[in-house]
Amino acid sequence: MTFRAEDTALSRRQFLVASAASCALAQQAQAQAQPAPSIAGSPEADPPTPRPGELLLVCTVNGKPERLSIDPASSLLTVLRQQLGLASVRHGCTDGTCGSCTTLLAGKRVPACLVPAALCHRQEMTTVEGLSEDGSLTAIQAAFLRHGAADCGFCTPGQVVAAHAILQEPLGPEPSALADALCGQACACDKLPQILQALASVRNQRG
């Protein structure tokens, strides 16, 4: 039995209408469901078993359990951005030096562009979307605002995640300790002085 292409293929217009409808439905479903489904609620995105040649990744992202089929060669960056739609994790230098994809993995900050996603099996990850538990600004986010620590905003999510992590890391007594901790967090708009001020202000508040 054979199918002719025109029997099954959707026209471009039908396809656009159909996909718009499914997006809207998916958004609605996501808003209503408690807890929200992993991504868009489509069966393909929530596989019980991995697709051929792929690997099952079970993990928690921003507090939400996820079950994904991934390419074994995928970076954490690719999975967070392309499979989970977390565009705050920026695709920057892809060699681990710019800091715009900084993500918390098991509570520690890592460059998502160089961490193989497959290593994150049964781990917890947090991006800027998951830093606040109730949707209000965290102390460091408020401090970024107060100190004008963002300009173009490209690197800001990674900077906020890094700053959040730095506040929980042991810091040496030397005067350059905070600046050293920001090593690997580049800002093309040169806002690092303001980011440092924001960091220092939250640290001082906490004593």
Binding site: L105, R109, G184
Partner: peptide, 9 residues
């Protein structure tokens, strides 16, 4: 060596 984020991994 490297950066704090790289050293974590």
């Amino acid at each position: 060596l490297a950066t704090p984020a790289l050293r974590n991994q």
